[in-house]
């Protein structure tokens, strides 16, 4: 297996993975969607809610906000507190606001150094004299349980390989037909200007009257993209997904 990193920052990770089977790449993708643990609000206690939204809807909206935990949490059911909830497995949040105002995600109060909340996500709007007061508990969970714990979005595609044969008459039909502007003309030749942008739609193959262009996806080479939901760094998501797969393989080995 060979890896080439095209882009790596907090939000996005773009990789080219070579010499690997599609099943492995898909397993990593599925691990990112369903298995990488992240932190999200699970329980909300309402003291006051005069807002136009019901408690349940507000609790769901707060749950969907990604929380960047700065401490290592345990899963609640594996914690020493036996699922009751303690600072080892829970992040405690508070929210109090009076209208007229928009309640944002950054209005939620959390102990410094424990977690970080994203900015500018509107939770609800309050009219004059309306009050909102609540406490919330955020815990570690997995995407397969609820989408609020989904660590990010992962996708892959076969690496596009575009070949232009000698039969080409330079009619430029393929250049015009391509919806992603992958092809171009240079020095009396059709060239591939941006092959990563190709989606393997084969519109150029269909439009060519001379069968001079060939588009194929390499099924041993992949373009892999991870987009973080901002509760973890995109790079960490990929690494943790691989860890999950290793753990699962070990578990299987032990059972055998």
């Amino acid at each position: 297996m060979r890896l080439k990193i095209l882009e790596a920052n907090e939000k996005n990770l773009v990789l080219i993975i070579e010499d690997v089977d599609v099943s492995i790449v898909n397993a990593i993708r599925r691990a990112i969607l369903t298995e990488v643990p992240t932190v999200a609000v699970e329980d909300v206690i309402f003291y006051e809610n005069d807002s136009p939204l019901h408690d349940e809807i507000l609790a769901l909206r707060i749950g969907l906000i990604p929380i960047k935990a700065k401490v290592d949490l345990k899963f609640r059911d594996e914690c020493e507190c036996n699922g009751k909830g303690c600072p080892m497995c829970t992040i405690y949040l508070r929210l109090e606001k009076e209208g007229p105002a928009t309640v944002y995600s950054h209005d939620i109060i959390v102990e410094e150094g424990v977690a970080e909340l994203p900015k500018n996500i509107p939770i609800v709007k309050l009219a004059k004299n309306q009050r909102l007061k609540l406490e919330a508990e955020a815990i570690l969970g997995r995407g397969k349980e609820h989408a609020k714990w989904q660590s990010g979005i992962a996708s892959y595609k076969y690496y596009p390989e575009i070949k232009i044969k000698e039969d080409c008459t330079l009619c430029k039909a393929c250049v015009e037909e391509c919806p992603r502007n992958v092809l171009d003309v240079e020095d009396d030749k059709i060239i591939v200007k941006d092959e990563l942008n190709c989606t393997l739609c084969k519109a150029c193959v269909e439009v060519c009257d001379y069968n001079a262009i060939d588009v194929k996806g390499n099924d041993r080479k992949f373009v892999f993209k991870v987009e973080s939901s901002s509760s973890l760094d995109a790079r960490d998501i990929f690494i943790k997904a691989c860890d999950v797969m290793i753990d699962k393989a070990k578990e299987l080995e032990e059972l055998l």
Partner: peptide, 20 residues
């Protein structure tokens, strides 16, 4: 009612971009 926090289909956060 109010902008959903995440995209219904893919789950990406979209609410923080709504006001701009």
């Amino acid at each position: 009612m109010i902008i959903p926090i995440r995209c219904f289909s893919c789950g990406a956060i979209i609410a923080d971009k709504y006001e701009e």
